[in-house]
Simulated assay, not measured.
Amino acid sequence: MQQAYINTPLGSCLIEGDDIGVCKIWVLDEKHNPTVSIPAELKEAVAQLEEYFSGKRKTFDFKMNPQGTEFQKKVWKALLEIPYGKTTSYHELSVKLGDVKAIRAVASANGKNPLWVVVPCHRVIGSDGSLTGYAGGLWRKKWLLEHETPPAQQSLF
C-alpha cells in the first residue's frame, strides 16, 4: 500500500492506495509535510484533489477502491450521484436507497466514508437545511459547501 500526504486549505490530507485504486483519503487534524515524491499509483488522485481545491475540478475519475460492507458501498455510490454544488438530506438519501427507515444506517455509512471529498458525504445535510455531523468537523463541511457554491456576483446596476 502506497501513501502520500498533501496540503489542502483544510489541513493535511493522507492518501493511500495501490495499483487497484485509492482506498483511503483522510483529512488530518495534525500537520504533516507533503510527500515530495508521490508514488505513481497516487499521482492522478493527488493531481485531481489539487485541481478540486483550486476550483478547476468538479468530479473525480481516478481509480478508487474503497473498502466497506456492501451496504456502505451502496451508500457511497449514491453519494457520488449528488451533483457538485448541490445537497441532499439523510432522509432523501434513505428514500433513494429504498428504505426510509434506514436513516441511521445511511448516516452511519456516510460517516465511515473512506474517500474524503471525493465521495461527497459533505453534501448531505439535515432535512431542515442544518449542517449535521461531519467526521472532519463542521467547519470543514461548511468550507467545502461554500467552495462548491460560491456566492453569485451581484450587479451594482
Rank of each mutant, 00 (worst) to 15 (best):
K24F: 04
K24C: 09
I25G: 05
I25E: 02
V27M: 07
L28M: 15
D29T: 13
D29I: 10
E30V: 01
E30I: 01
K31P: 14
H32W: 13
H32L: 14
N33W: 05
N33S: 12
P34K: 11
P34H: 09
T35A: 01
T35I: 03
T35F: 01
V36W: 04
V36G: 05
S37C: 10
S37M: 07
I38N: 00
I38R: 00
P39S: 11
A40L: 13
A40I: 13
E41T: 10
L42A: 00
L42T: 00
K43S: 09
K43P: 05
K43R: 09
K43H: 08
K43Y: 05
E44D: 14
E44F: 11
E44M: 15
A45L: 01
A45G: 04
V46C: 00
A47W: 03
Q48R: 03
L49C: 02
L49T: 00
E51I: 03
E51D: 13
Y52H: 05
Y52R: 03
F53K: 08
F53A: 11
F53E: 06
F53H: 07
S54V: 02
S54L: 07
S54T: 03
S54A: 13
G55C: 11
K56V: 09
K56H: 14
R57G: 08
R57N: 08
R57F: 08
T59P: 01
T59Y: 06
T59K: 03
F60T: 14
F60D: 11
D61H: 15
F62C: 01
F62E: 00
M64D: 04
M64F: 04
M64R: 08
M64G: 05
N65R: 13
N65L: 11
P66C: 08
P66M: 12
Q67M: 09
G68K: 00
G68P: 00
T69G: 15
E70Q: 10
F71G: 03
F71M: 08
Q72F: 08
Q72C: 11
Q72K: 07
K73A: 08
K74R: 14
K74W: 03
V75M: 10
W76L: 05
W76E: 01
K77G: 06
K77T: 08
K77H: 04
L80F: 08
E81C: 10
E81A: 12
E81K: 09
I82H: 02
I82Q: 03
P83M: 14
P83C: 15
P83Q: 15
Y84E: 05
K86H: 12
T87G: 11
S89A: 08
S89W: 06
Y90W: 12
Y90T: 15
E92Y: 07
E92G: 10
L93K: 02
L93M: 11
L93S: 02
S94W: 02
S94T: 06
S94L: 04
S94D: 10
V95D: 07
V95A: 03
V95I: 14
K96A: 13
K96S: 12
L97C: 06
L97E: 02
L97K: 02
G98T: 11
G98Q: 12
G98R: 09
D99A: 15
V100R: 12
V100W: 07
K101T: 13
A102M: 13
A102V: 13
A102Q: 10
A102D: 14
A105D: 12
A105I: 04
A105L: 11
V106K: 00
A107E: 08
S108I: 03
A109C: 11
N110A: 09
G111F: 06
